[in-house]
Design a protein around this nucleic acid. Structure first.
Length: 495
RNA sequence: GGGGAUAUCGUCUAGAGGUCAGGACGAGGGAUUUUCAGUCCUUAAACCGGGGUUCAAUUCCCCGUAUCCCUACCA
């Protein structure tokens, strides 16, 4: 039987990195086994806070960005469609009825108020919470129905609940964690179909996985605790269970589950900040998976594909290390062809207003000279803005200059003469190249009888307003003769 | 409260019944250079605790503890 796996996100907002890592694992497993990777939208929670249609677009963008392309999903369709659960309602209704008929499920007429009161009482008494199975018993169910009918003046709404086996054990086989045994007694009669006609996760997921021929369910560890209920639904249908894998969760720096509610965890935010897809892929896959003995962490997607197996998935949660991600992204930026980085950086400069929209031919040429000078300092693409600002913006002395830098370097006695000499000499350089500039500045230092550094540093501050940046001569060459001399003159006048 | 899972440097992790417990990020130091960055070299840094099993356990088993997850008509 060929492998079929799925990633099943909910449009509760922009997907978070933990979810995408699960998607990556699924995708890798499918590619590795020549199987199919399906993506299914689990949009059965219709409450406004949890159903956000824009989230669907973010899901699509994130998957495409990572290059984790689904073989079957709502965008391209497929044999097992539709791939959006809200378009499969009839299927769930039909299957819930099937379970009612076979005695594996029952209608429950209990009001939310009753359930809430019951839960509260249980909590106060310190006993485990859970449905008291009032409606599981036919007579009491009918009484409840009648009672509710009187209250509402019509046929009351109901949910369909799973009739969980009351005794015995359910064994879950997790490919990574092994066998886990649950007492059925402790399991609740899970709601399968809600009053609004939408299924809950347990029904929808089990039905869809079966109908879509899913062979392996790779999902977050947060599902492990409820896996007995999941299995019970499958057993109720008498279906063969898919293989289960529960990769550990990704935790935030506060050691709590990295959730969408944390805010700074959405995948699209990482895209916006300028993390390259291969860096994100590499980092995420390594958060909970490793190659084994090999001491290699920077891996291309083909290399990962080559090494990937479920055995490498770890069993304990991992804390998301933003610093390491940045480092890795910097590595990938530096390994990329310059042209690619140029193209990716330009939009950030446009957005920051440092170049026009769209950039002129001259601006593009200029960017092509400047951006490479800063690549080794970039950890994320968005940093290009601050890094190259002195090159693109007309900086005014002294307000746009780093005060500390000015204080440290511009007060020296030789600075006015130095500026004058540079202005004169730079104007005469035949090519205004880094090599010529260096020769010229060395000559200035010699004539002033000061150390090279005492010319280098004030010159850098005078021209860029900062003490940090690319090598001075490369920076000057990039900036060009006109801008360089213009800035030197400006400082000379105002100093 | 109940249930489940997990436990190696600060973080991500490798590892085997006997290892100097390895690598990476980060941190410290050094080299390079005109600064920063980068690159290279280098240092410090860990087997949760207690019982077993064994000649030997950080590794296997049990207990404890801690952490995370579930305990919704959310996924």
């Amino acid at each position: 039987m060929s492998v079929r796996v799925r990633y099943a996100p909910s449009p509760t907002g922009s997907p978070h990195v933990g979810n995408l890592r699960t998607a990556i694992y699924n995708w890798l497993f499918a590619r590795k086994h020549d199987g199919k990777f399906l993506v299914r939208l689990e949009d059965t929670d219709r409450s406004p806070e949890r159903y956000q249609p824009e989230g669907i677009w973010d899901i699509e963008e994130s998957l495409r960005y990572l290059g984790v392309c689904p073989d079957e999903w709502w965008v391209s369709g497929g044999e097992a469609g539709p791939y959006i659960q809200s378009e499969r309602l009839a299927l769930y209704k039909q299957h819930s009825e099937q379970l009612i008929e076979s005695g594996h499920a029952y209608k429950c007429y209990c009001s939310k108020e009753r359930l809430e009161a019951m839960r509260q009482a249980q909590q106060e008494r310190g006993v485990p919470t859970g449905y008291d199975r009032n409606c599981r018993e036919p007579e009491r169910r009918e009484n409840m129905r009648l009672q509710r009918m009187q209250e509402l003046g019509g046929e009351p709404p109901f949910v369909v609940r799973l009739a969980m086996p009351m005794e015995g054990k359910t064994t879950v086989h997790d490919l990574v964690k092994g066998e886990i045994v649950y007492e059925n007694r402790g399991q609740d009669d899970q709601v399968l179909l809600k009053t609004d006609g939408y299924p809950t996760y347990f029904l929808a997921c089990v039905v869809d996985d079966h109908l879509m021929g899913v062979t392996h369910v790779i999902r977050g560890d947060d599902w492990l605790s409820s896996a007995a209920k999941f299995m019970a639904v499958i057993n109720a249908f008498g279906w063969e269970a898919p293989k289960l894998v529960h990769p550990p969760l990704i935790l935030g720096p506060d050691r709590k589950k990295l959730s969408k509610r944390h805010g700074a965890t959405q995948f699209t935010e990482f895209i916006e900040q300028g993390y390259l897809p291969e860096a994100l892929f590499n980092f995420l896959v390594l958060l909970g998976w490793s190659t084994g003995e090999e001491n290699k962490e920077l891996l291309t997607i083909p290399e990962i594909l080559d090494r990937f197996s479920l055995e490498g998935i770890s069993e304990h949660p991992a804390i998301f290390d933003y610093e390491k991600l940045k480092w890795m992204n910097g590595q990938y930026i530096r390994r990329s062809p310059v042209g690619r980085i140029l193209g990716l950086c330009l939009p950030y400069l446009v957005k920051a207003g440092l170049v026009s929209d769209p950039p002129t031919r001259e601006e593009r040429e200029y960017a092509r000279r400047i951006i490479p000078l800063e690549i080794e300092r970039m950890k994320t693409l968005s940093e290009v803005v601050e890094l190259t600002r002195p090159f693109f913006q007309n900086i005014q002395y002294p307000q746009d200059y780093d005060a500390k830098a000015v204080a440290k370097w511009m007060g020296a006695a030789h600075v006015p003469r130095m500026l004058q000499m540079e202005i004169e000499q730079f104007a005469l350089l035949p090519a205004f190249s880094a090599a010529e500039l260096e020769e010229s500045v060395r000559a200035v230092a010699a004539q002033l009888e000061v150390k090279f550094a005492e010319v280098i540093h004030p010159t850098r501050v005078a021209v860029t307003g900062r003490t940090v940046g690319p090598g001075l001569f490369e920076a000057l060459e990039g900036l060009g003769r006109e801008r360089t001399i213009g800035r030197l003159k400006q400082v000379q006048e105002k100093i």
